[in-house]
Design a protein around this nucleic acid. Structure first.
Lengths: 152, 152
DNA sequence: CGCATTCACTTAACATGTTAAGTATCTCCC
DNA sequence: GGGAGATACTTAACATGTTAAGTGAATGCG
């Protein structure tokens, strides 16, 4: 069997960890996890979104998002109100405090990103992102590959 | 601020998820998580390893590994014995049952990997892996970037 | 030797990942 | 208009990620 440490999943995992290791300390100082930061960033770009749409944008599963939103709301970093037209949906938006927190984290975050870009090379970075996108595309139609064996 | 869905961490996350989504159902049928599978694969390649070394190979943090080893041992998929020379260290190895389980999972797993390779292209895959390795290298010296602000 | 320090893990505590089940609301169609 | 089915979440339960603290065994050095 192929040396698994050279497998694609491991390469992706290690690469991502190498990148995230740069950001985590800074986020941590502001009391934010990587996922909470993703949510705030996603919210900063728009007026308000439904939870399901936010899950897609921040690439989080529903249950994770539910928990995190509950916590972020308790910390007054976001706001929620149920949609008028459909009581099932709730519209989420970033609060004034949330915006303030983002403003205090963003410069450092940008600096780190810039340093990563500098080290790896802007061109190579763009190329890498293209390939990652292409990989995603290649596997998109495959879905979740349930053809393994017979299940219910 | 840059559209975060196009950031490097998100690209890496989505790409990895697209890949892992292919494998998870198959592993799940055999009662294995992705991490448990990584450990078995790492163990299959050698006689026995220390826990710390295994953590490095399987790219897991100590605490996660501790828990998983406890569970895998309870399921008789691995074996442990403390090293003679140093009572602190314990040597971990895969059991006969573990080998058998691997044999039942591996074919499917290989087939999935082959399909991914086919779809994305073997050459592009190799290229991507090279870039991921290079990215890791670029950030290796950076360590964990504690220069954000003053902490102990 | 003796004991402070280091080392190899393990536990603890809290946050998220993942799947399944639950709840309230809405839609559609008879 | 009313009930079956779909939708938009939320809760539950268990596994892992992540940092800090704990434990027992080795090491170094005065």
């Amino acid at each position: 069997m192929r040396d698994f440490s050279r497998s694609l999943p491991m390469s992706l995992l290690r690469a991502r960890e190498a990148v995230m290791r740069q950001f985590r300390p800074s986020l941590r100082e502001h009391g934010l996890t990587e996922q909470q930061w993703r949510i705030l960033r996603a919210l900063a770009a728009i007026e308000a979104v439904e939870v399901t749409e936010l899950a897609r944008t921040a690439f989080l599963l529903g249950p994770s998002l539910s928990r995190i939103l509950r916590d972020l709301e308790a910390r007054n970093l976001i706001e929620r109100k149920t949609a008028k037209a459909d009581q099932r949906r709730s519209m989420v938006s970033i609060s004034k405090e949330g915006v303030k927190l983002m403003a205090s984290v963003a410069p450092n975050s940008e600096a780190i990103y810039a340093e990563i870009t500098r080290r790896f090379g802007a061109r190579k970075l763009a190329e890498l992102q293209d390939m990652l996108g292409a990989l995603e595309q290649s596997l998109a139609e495959l879905g979740s590959a349930e053809e393994a064996s017979a299940e219910e």
